[in-house]
């Protein structure tokens, strides 16, 4: 297809474009949850306070909109306060993994050779074990706490970032504009980080958004299995484990955090996809 025709086509409203309404809703939900993460402890300071008198109230009870669990903890307060534990970890995982991915992926993809080989085998090794299994085994056997779990997940998430950055860098590095920079005798580090990396950003950002969603799922799965988050902590995954037994008496104790996890992960996924479509369209000439 000729260039002008291609440009005309590029301006077409893409039929595959996600409905902006869903994107706006997702952003709104993410905004609300971000607010809870930042101020949840101020809104619900007594979330983990137990009360034998108030144990196992159904939703709609006076003073307890969503009822209480068997320890008498208010489900709404728990949910509000649990946002921080459920989300801070995943966001840190996505950021840490992005950083590792950029560093190792760029170096491997641009320099190639032995460094690439070593990094490649390292990612192969990490990829050969299912992420959740590795996390359960390592965090469980070693009794890792919250932040150790974050570090572990960064390590386990990084191969996908490394591979994506590496593939993007390799694709860009073969392009003539990179060779033109070599013809100007610019240093390798300068070419990597000023010429090549800017063209890979859109991939990185998109993948990090998707990583937030998957890290949220992984984190809550771990705490559901009793790994990573200490018992008694306000955390959505933890709420599901604890609430399973009292599902008949107070379904809200399970349904609310479960729907929140699904909703927030879906929203992050949707925004990630949307970013991917829009950023890559402007990033490519």
């Amino acid at each position: 297809m000729s260039s002008t025709e291609a440009i005309v086509l590029a301006k077409l409203p893409r039929s595959r474009r996600r409905h902006p309404v869903a994107v706006w809703l997702s952003l709104a939900l993410l905004g609300l949850v971000a607010f809870l993460v930042l101020f949840g402890n101020l809104i619900a300071p007594d979330a983990t306070a137990q009360s034998i008198l108030d144990s196992l109230l159904p939703p709609g009870s006076p003073g307890h909109l969503l009822g209480t669990d068997e320890l008498g903890r208010d489900v709404l307060d728990l949910t509000i306060a649990g946002a921080a534990s459920a989300l801070v970890g995943p966001v840190c995982v996505a950021l840490g993994s992005m950083l590792l991915g950029i560093l190792l992926g760029t170096v491997a993809g641009y320099l190639r050779g032995p460094i690439d080989f070593i990094i490649g085998r390292w990612t192969d090794l990490l990829f050969s074990l299912p992420l959740l299994l590795a996390a359960i085994v390592v965090a469980g056997v070693f009794g890792a706490g919250y932040w150790m779990t974050v570090l572990l997940l960064i390590l386990l998430f990084s191969p996908s970032d490394i591979r994506i950055v590496r593939a993007g860098v390799m694709e860009q590095a073969a392009r003539p504009f990179v060779e033109a920079a070599q013809m100007l005798s610019l240093s390798k580090a300068r070419i990597m980080f000023t010429q090549v990396l800017p063209n890979v950003w859109s991939l990185v950002i998109t993948n990090s958004m998707l990583n937030v969603a998957f890290a949220l799922v992984a984190f809550s799965s771990l705490s559901f299995l009793g790994v990573g988050v200490a018992p008694g902590t306000a955390d959505w995954g933890r709420q599901l484990t604890d609430g399973r037994a009292i599902m008949i008496d107070n379904p809200a104790a399970v349904l609310v955090p479960a729907l929140l996890i699904i909703g927030v992960a879906s929203a992050a996924n949707l925004v990630g996809d949307w970013l991917g479509q829009n950023l890559t369209r402007t990033g490519r000439s």
């Binding site: 003539p176 504009f177 920079a181 063209n199 000439s285």
Partner: peptide, 9 residues
């Protein structure tokens, strides 16, 4: 000509 210039610069 489409790839000899850095699209981001």
């Amino acid at each position: 000509p489409y790839s000899s210039l850095n699209p981001m610069i």
